[in-house]
Structures are given as C-alpha cells and as structure tokens.
Write a protein that binds this DNA or RNA. Structure first.
Length: 540
RNA sequence: GCGGGUGUAGCUCAGUGGUAGAGCGCCACGUUGCCAACGUGGUUGUCGUGGGUUCAAGUCCCAUCACCCGCUCCA
C-alpha cells in the first residue's frame, strides 16, 4: 500500500526538494559548489521549524522548577549566540587546530592517501640498498609487517630474514626528509609517495583588510567552543547555578574531504548544541539523561524507532578526552542497508574544555589529562590563564564542572525528517506523493481552499485564510480542481486542508481534511484556529 | 585525490554529425460541489561550462565544473 524510502526513491525525494523549493544546489547558475546547499522557500520554513522546535523544547519551554522525567534534579537552560570567527587560540586549545590541520601523503602507485604523522616505518639495509619500509601499523604488528614487506620488495624468502639489517626502530614518517628511499605502506616500489601536503579541515580567513599571517583566523568548525569561552560570562551575568545548560544554534564550517550524500556531509552546516554543566559527581547520571532525552526528541517528532538508533561508542572510538559518547543515528536511504548516519552525538567531555581554555591544551597522560608540552617543557598551546572555574557558594567549593554535550546537526536532522516523511502510495490507481511531516515541522500548517470559484466561496475562504495566517503558516489556493490542490499540499507535507464549500455559505461550517488519513470532518469556521492550535501544541 | 557513470525545458527523460522533442508541471480562459477531472490556448532551452575538429556539433575530441556509485579519508 504505502511505501517508505528506498534508495531508489531517494532520487525522487531529491527531485521533489528541487522542484518544490526545499533545497537547491548552491550557486547553481554557475554550476554549483561542492558541499554547499541552499534552502528554498519551503526548505527554510522546514529547517526553521526544526530549529525552533529544538529551541523551544530544550530552552524556552523547559521547566526549570521540577526535575523532568529521567533527570537527576531540576536544571536551568539558557541560550547564547556567539561570533563565527573567534580568537585563533580558541581552536588551538580546543584541539581542532592539531586535529583538523593535517599533512597528507599520497601514493602515486596505489592512489592511497595517508596522514603524514600516522605513517611509520623502519630503516633497513640489505643487498647494498638502504631504504625506509613504511606501514600504518604500530607495535608488534608494525615490526612484523615491515619485515614481511622488506623481504617481498627485495624478492627474498622468509628464511633469508637474516640478510636484513635494521638500522632504526619504528619511527614516524615525519622524521624522514626525502621520500625517494621510502617504500609506501601499500606500494611495491620505492619513492612513490608525494611530499606531504597541507590539509586544513578548518576554513582559514583573515581578519583585517590587510591579509597577512598575523591576521589569520578560522571560521568555527563547531559552535561549542563559543559556549566554553563564554562560560564565565554566562555564570556571572544570568544567575544560573549548576546544573545548567547553555544552548546555541548556528553555522559551522568544515572542509570535508568528500562532501557526499545530498546535504548529509556539507562544508557549511548548522549545529544545535547544548553544553550542559554539572558537578563531576553527577556527570554520569546526566550523561545518561541527555542520551535518552535527545533520542526521545527525535522519535517524538516522528522519526521511526526502527530507523533510528542510539549507539554507544566503543572504548577505542572515544576521543582522548571523552569518558563516554553515544550517537543518535538514522538509517538514511542513501546508505547501504544496515548502515546508519549520525544525526547527533552526545559526549561526556569531562572537564577537558574549561581546563584547556585556562591551562592550555590538554592531552591524555596515562589515566589523567595533562597540559601538552613542547620540547622545551612549555605548553604546546597556551590557555587563557583566566580562572573560569565555577564557585559553588553552598559547598564553598571551586571546581571545573563536567560537561555533557548533545550536539545535533540541523541540516542532517532536516534531511532525516524529509527522508522519514517521504511516501508514495496508491490511491484508487493513482500514485499519491506525500510528506508525512510532523505538524510542528511542516512548512505550511494549513491550506485554505474554496471548493469552486463562485457563489462567494473565494471570499469566505480568503477571510478565513487571512485570519489563520496571523498565527500560523497558511496557504491559499484557488487554482484548478480540488483534488489536484489536495495533492499539491500532500507533496509538501501540509497536514491540514480546510475547504469552503456550498454548505459553508449556509451554516458557516467548513471541511477539515487530514493529510494522513484523508478523512474529512465538518467544523465551524471559528473552530479552525483553536483546532489548529491544539494540533500544533508541543507534545515532546 | 583515484576509478566508473551521468549532465538536454521547472521535473522525468528521448534525441546515434544535418530544423531542439515528448510526458508531466506551470499560466490563462471556460467548465467543475471533495482527492493529480475535462476542453481550448499559452509558457519553457547558453543541450553543465570553456575550447577544438567540421561546410555543419546536443551528438566527435580536449579541458573543466557539478551530481551519483565505488575506493580513500573523516566528526
């Protein structure tokens, strides 16, 4: 009967998005720009509704007097909107500068690409040749692999291993100056690696009209850091007390290597982030709360639990600072069956961020985090030196709060809601295309339609339309047959249509038509607004 | 970054060196009392972009851009 998304219908959805004005390729008249997308008239409404639902549910309508279901205690939520360009030191202390600023090496023979600092190897001499055998493996495996590959390169057998004379331990490729004597990690010949080339995953820009390195800055790769560097400002200015969260919605930028899959991996994207601050002793409970709370938000707005999953990261997937991370993932139709794409990550970040911004960039040192130092014992990246700890005047205790970070992608969410909503179904031999968007998210909430353009029906419909439009996104359509107008609204996800007909002129009632059930009921014209309001009320 | 595929009207696509097409959509008028009705008329093109070959290029060649698939890479 009704079919949900398959990878074939993804093409249809992409086409619908273009045709009806949800999404356009950026700069399309100039041929587009890889990794950038524009939201059209309906797309901007949909995305705004998603962001507004998030803001309302997380911040403005949050009940800060009682503990919500599943929460350890009551808590406060406030918002923030910080600049996209920040002091460059922010990104050094956050770890993005090191993590997003890589040198890459390509192999001309195998067409593979490696991170310069992740390739290592050993120098070997044999049969009058001296060369560097590279590998991506470390430790015992690295030793074994370099040995095997050295033998293979020289055409020796394993029992001739004694002919190999190793002249170095396993060292990083960064210690090698010339690649002419390097055997790439997957290569058969020497000297196939290109010189290391700089890959900057952050967008670089220049502050000031004179562009020089001293004015170099970055477009933010995440909104979170703006919250951390404003932590003390918020605490000092807004009477918040732990536990509380700071929320922010805004654009971020990353030079993704491979933008793919429609808007899923864009280079300019919008995030909806919360940094939730709590006492370290309670952080594990809050982490669990936010995982579940955020998962429920998506299901409450209509993402089916069969395509949505909450996945805890394995220990080896965790960032160096994180004590726990879970992803909320959606089985996008463009992914292979069984694969999921990330919508949101909920990370337990401990005190990494606030400490780093005071003391300098931290790195893992055994069980603990310590300021990362350079060769001279000085911090690799200096912190602000400002004491941005929290003072609890009840406990008379000054400490770094722990941070739980639910970080959601607004564009990915928008795409997931679109994919989930897209349906094609057979109605009396005709294919009906319908977006079953949650009424809160639908770009148009109600369409007002005169059944025919005579006998005063258009006038009555126009009056009702104007009244509804003051409070809700309404649409007026008097073109063509009524059936066609219903289908047009179905295709863009309008949940309700109100039709003014002959009976309306007699008793002032109208037809209320439901997008999903196709059922129609009669309603007094004055009841339309309250009914709409009731249906759009937040439920999650 | 590599390999393969694709690019023609708003959308889906046909067009095998010789006048740029179809269906759907969209607009107007008429008709029309509830699920993509009907009639009549109309609208739509830098054939992705740039160069080349040719008397002649949507079609052949080169380059380039974008999208899709697979590698590679990655919050």
């Amino acid at each position: 009967m009704t079919t949900n998304m398959s990878s074939e219908s993804m093409d249809k959805l992409v086409s619908l998005c273009k045709r009806r004005g949800f999404l356009f390729p950026s700069s399309e008249i100039y041929g587009g720009l890889n990794g950038f997308w524009d939201y059209g008239p309906l797309g901007v409404e949909l995305k705004r509704n998603i962001k507004e639902a998030w803001w309302k549910d997380m911040v403005s309508a949050h009940d800060d007097l009682d503990a919500p279901e599943g929460a350890p205690t009551a808590y406060q939520m406030v918002g923030l909107d910080c600049s996209i360009i920040m002091h460059p030191q922010v990104w050094k202390c956050s770890g993005h500068y090191d993590l997003f600023h890589d040198f890459m090496v390509d192999c001309r023979e195998t067409k593979k690409r490696y991170r310069h600092d992740q390739v290592r190897g050993r120098w070997v001499e044999a049969r009058g040749k001296k060369f560097f055998v590279a590998t991506q493996s470390g430790g015992e495996e690295g030793f074994k692999e370099t040995e095997t590959r050295a033998l293979k390169h020289l055409g020796l057998r394993s029992k001739q291993v004694d002919e190999l004379s190793w002249t170095s331990p396993l060292v990083s490729l960064t210690t090698v100056d010339s690649f002419a004597e390097v055997l790439g990690p997957d290569a058969g010949e020497l000297g196939t690696l290109t010189p290391p080339r700089e890959f900057n995953l952050m967008f670089k820009t220049f502050v000031g009209a004179l562009s020089g390195e001293e004015g170099a800055a970055f477009l933010r790769p995440e909104t979170a850091q703006g919250i951390f560097v404003n932590f003390k400002n918020v605490v000092d200015s807004s009477r918040v007390r732990l536990p509380f969260g700071i929320a922010q919605v805004g654009k971020s930028f990353r030079n993704e290597i491979t933008p793919r899959n429609f808007t899923f991996r864009s280079r300019e994207f919008e995030q909806m982030e919360i940094e939730f601050f709590c006492h370290p002793s309670q952080s594990a409970e809050w982490y669990r709360y936010w995982r579940d709370r955020r998962y429920r938000w998506y299901t409450g707005l209509g993402l089916a639990s069969s395509r949505l999953r909450l996945r805890d990261h394995d220990a080896d997937e965790l960032s160096h600072y994180s004590c726990g991370t879970a992803d909320i993932e959606y089985a996008f139709p463009f992914l292979p069956p069984g694969e999921f794409g990330e919508l949101e990550g909920i990370a337990h970040r401990g005190d990494f961020d606030l400490r780093s911004h005071r003391e300098g960039k931290l790195a893992r040192n055994g069980e603990d985090l310590a300021v990362e130092v350079d060769g001279e014992g000085k911090p690799r990246h200096r912190g602000s030196g400002k004491d941005i700890r929290y003072f609890d005047d009840q406990l008379k205790e000054r400490f770094y709060p722990h941070v739980i970070e639910p970080s959601a992608g607004a564009d990915r969410g928008t795409l997931a809601f679109l994919c989930e909503a897209f349906h094609e179904e057979q109605v009396e031999g005709e294919t009906r295309t319908v977006l079953r968007l949650h009424p809160r998210l639908a770009p148009i909430k109600v369409a007002v339609l005169p059944l025919v353009n005579k006998d005063g029906m258009p006038e009555m419909a126009a009056k009702l339309y104007k009244e509804l439009k003051r409070d809700h996104a309404a649409y007026f359509d008097d073109g063509g047959a009524i059936g066609r107008r219903y289908r047009r609204q179905d295709e863009v996800g309008t949940p309700f249509c109100v039709t003014v007909d002959g009976q309306s002129l007699v008793d002032g009632s109208v037809t209320w038509r439901d997008r999903d059930t196709l059922e129609q009921v009669r309603l007094g014209a004055a009841e339309v607004l309250p009914e709409l309001h009731r249906r759009l009320r937040a439920t999650c």
